[in-house]
């Protein structure tokens, strides 16, 4: 069964060019996300604002590749691998649970 991810409650974020800073109020921590982390955060925020509390890696991959016409299976596989790394990193710092 696929792992389900949730955006940390109360998280604040601010886009600063290619980077995004996030603040985790419960931990009193601030983290700087690179471009890939910022894209996944944007995806998670989009799910949240559409009322979807939880999502899987496959959901995120579909969202992130939505504007890519006819992605081939190789792109999808490599994208999924890269996404797993970013999701793990966002979980490690506490942006996602």
């Amino acid at each position: 069964m696929s792992r389900v991810y949730r955006l940390t409650e109360g998280l604040l974020s601010r886009s600063l060019g290619d980077e995004t800073v996030v603040y985790l109020p419960d931990r009193f921590e601030t983290h700087l996300l690179d471009e890939a982390g910022a894209q996944v955060l944007e995806c998670a925020l989009a799910f949240q604002s559409s009322g979807r509390a939880a999502f899987t890696a496959a959901d995120a991959l579909t969202w992130l590749m939505a504007d890519q016409t006819n992605p081939n299976s190789s792109d999808m596989a490599q994208g999924a691998q890269a996404l797993d790394v970013v999701l793990a990193d966002l979980c490690r710092v506490g942006v996602l649970a």
């Binding site: 604040l12 601010r14 600063l16 009193f28 700087l32």
Partner: peptide, 29 residues
Amino acid sequence: MTRGQAMIGLIENAFNYNLLHRTGFQTMA
């Protein structure tokens, strides 16, 4: 220097950033 790097650098030099909590983050950003 990117703005993100500058923000992290400022936080390292702040006396009461965490005390201000959300307000500290918004003000710094």
